[in-house]
């Protein structure tokens, strides 16, 4: 029985302070999946992904249901993942 190799892209997720995490994801996966992975890798397993936002080319990504490919990402692309809110004095 033939199997279809699943394509995986390497994505570089970068925290607000510049720390990086590299991992693989399917180009057809939704951005929400990428955000979930990135938050746990960058901010710890206990971090809640809904408290974070993803920036692609400096713009906050509001639709997390589109795929990596639809969002214009490619193999080796970088995204920034940062907390939605910052403390304000």
């Amino acid at each position: 029985m033939a199997t279809i190799a699943q394509e995986l892209w390497t994505i570089v997720a970068v925290a607000g302070d510049g720390d990086e995490a590299r991992f693989e994801d399917n180009p057809h996966s939704p951005l929400r999946h990428l955000l979930d992975q990135a938050v746990r890798r960058l901010y710890g397993q206990a971090a809640n992904p809904s408290d974070y936002e993803m920036l692609i080319a400096g713009t906050v990504q509001t639709d997390l249901e589109i795929s990596l490919q639809q969002a214009g990402l490619r193999n080796g692309a970088e995204v920034v993942v940062q907390p939605r809110d910052v403390s304000k004095g």
Partner: peptide, 26 residues
């Protein structure tokens, strides 16, 4: 108001300041 707060130096790492500047502007 904030001089007595304790923050790690990573709070003001240059890359973190770039992110803060971007947040301020966008």
């Amino acid at each position: 108001s904030h001089v007595h707060e304790a923050h790690p130096r990573t709070t003001w790492r240059l890359s973190a300041v770039a992110t803060l500047l971007h947040r301020f502007l966008t």
